[in-house]
C-alpha cells in the first residue's frame, strides 16, 4: 500500500521514479539485467539480445506512431539503412562500434526525415501507404546498389570492436545491446518530460490547435520521424552486429508490421508499452515453439499441425488484444499497480 506520497519540491514531483519503492524496484531490475547473462543459458541469452534490439526499434516506432500519431510502415527499411551502414563501415573502416552505430542512426534519421516530408499533407492510412512505398524503395536500393550493399548476397561483417575488445559471442553482445537499450529508453522517457514530447502528443491529439498554440507542425513531424528512424537505425546496426550478416531479406516488410503490432499490443503512446510489446512479440512465438516441443512426446503429430497453427495462435492473440485491451499491455500493468497501491484494501 502506498501512503505518505507528498512531495516538497516540484523536482521531486516530476522525477521519473517518485517513490523509494519505485527506485528500489528499478534498481533491482537493473541489477538483474546485469547479472542475467552470468546465469542464463545460451538460448535465453540469444533471446535477450533479440528482445533488446526489438525494444529499441519498437520504442522508436512508438515515438512516431504512438506519440505523434503518424503511422509508419517504414521501420524495417530504416533498420535496414542502419544495418547496411554498420556493415559497410565494418568492412571498409576500423571504427569502434559506438561511432558506427551513431553513424547508422544519423544516416537513418536523415533518410527518415526525407520520407517524413509528405506527412505535413497526408495523415493516417495515406501516410502509411507513403511510408510503405518508401520502404519498398529502400528494399530496391538494398538489392540493386550491389557495389555498396552486396546485392542479394548481402554483406558479412567482422565482429564489433571497441578498444581492442571484440564482441564475437552473444554474451558480449548482450553487454553491448542491453545498456544501449536502457539508455535509449531513458532518453525516450525524458523527451516526454519536456516541451518536445508535449508538442508530439499535441500533434497527435489535435494538430490544428497545436499549430495555433505555436507548434510548427512540419518541424515537429520531421523531428519525430528523425528520432524514430534514429532508433530504428541503431537497432538495425545492432541487428547487423548480432547476426554478422545483412541481406535485403534481413529487413522484410513483415518486420515493419511486426513492430506496428508490437506497439499496438504493448500500448501506443506509452514507453513501457513499447517495451512490453517488443518482449511479447519476440517471446510468444518462441514460447509457442517450446510448447510444441513439450507436447511432441505425448502427441507425436504435434509439429505437423502446430507449425502452421503458430501463426494462427499468434494472430488470435493480437486480435484478442485489440478487442479486449485496446490500450495494450501497458494498461494491464497499470491495473496491476493500482491494485497493489491500495492492497490489502480493495478499490
Amino acid at each position: 500500500m502506498r501512503i505518505g506520497d507528498a512531495k516538497q519540491s516540484y523536482a521531486a514531483d516530476e522525477a521519473l521514479w517518485t517513490s523509494t519503492t519505485q527506485q528500489v524496484w528499478f534498481g533491482l531490475l537493473l541489477l538483474s539485467l546485469l547479472l542475467f547473462p552470468f546465469f542464463a543459458s545460451p538460448y535465453l541469452l540469444y533471446l535477450a539480445c533479440l528482445v533488446g534490439i526489438a525494444v529499441i526499434s519498437a520504442t522508436g516506432l512508438n515515438i512516431l506512431t504512438g506519440f505523434t500519431g503518424l503511422i509508419s510502415l517504414g521501420q524495417a527499411g530504416f533498420m535496414g539503412v542502419g544495418g547496411y551502414t554498420v556493415a559497410w563501415l565494418s568492412l571498409h573502416t576500423s571504427l569502434p562500434f559506438p561511432i558506427a552505430l551513431l553513424a547508422a542512426g544519423l544516416l537513418s534519421a536523415a533518410i527518415g526525415m526525407v520520407i517524413g516530408l509528405p506527412s505535413l499533407r497526408i495523415k493516417g492510412l495515406y501516410l502509411a501507404i507513403a511510408t510503405l512505398a518508401a520502404s519498398v524503395f529502400l528494399h530496391f536500393v538494398f538489392v540493386e546498389w550491389a557495389s555498396v550493399t552486396g546485392g542479394m548476397a548481402g554483406l558479412s561483417l567482422r565482429s564489433a570492436q571497441l578498444f581492442g575488445l571484440t564482441f564475437h559471442n552473444d554474451f558480449r553482445m548482450y553487454f553491448m545491446i542491453m545498456p544501449l537499450a536502457v539508455l535509449m529508453l531513458l532518453a525516450a522517457r525524458n523527451i516526454f518530460r519536456t516541451r518536445i514530447g508535449r508538442a508530439f502528443i499535441a500533434i497527435r491529439d489535435r494538430d490544428i490547435s497545436a499549430e495555433i498554440l505555436g507548434i510548427p507542425l512540419l518541424r515537429y513531424k520531421l523531428l519525430s520521424f528523425a528520432l524514430s528512424s534514429f532508433y530504428a537505425g541503431v537497432a538495425g546496426g545492432l541487428f547487423a552486429y548480432f547476426y554478422r550478416v545483412v541481406t535485403p531479406e534481413s529487413f522484410p516488410l513483415s518486420m515493419s508490421i511486426f513492430y506496428l503490432a508490437a506497439i499496438i499490443v504493448g500500448g501506443m503512446g506509452s514507453i513501457l508499452g513499447g517495451v512490453l510489446g517488443a518482449i511479447f512479440m519476440t517471446l510468444v512465438p518462441e514460447g509457442l515453439k517450446l510448447l510444441t516441443t513439450a507436447i511432441t512426446p505425448i502427441y507425436p503429430q504435434a509439429p505437423v499441425f502446430m507449425s502452421p497453427l503458430l501463426g494462427v495462435v499468434f494472430g488470435v492473440l493480437i486480435v484478442g488484444f485489440l478487442i479486449f485491451e485496446p490500450n495494450g499491455l501497458a494498461e494491464v500493468w497499470r491495473r496491476i499497480r493500482r491494485f497493489f497501491h491500495l492492497w490489502p484494501f480493495r478499490t
Partner: peptide, 10 residues
C-alpha cells in the same frame, strides 16, 4: 527553448 539533445538528456 529546450532542444532535442537537451530533452533526451534532461
Amino acid at each position: 527553448k529546450t532542444g532535442l539533445l537537451g530533452a533526451l538528456a534532461y
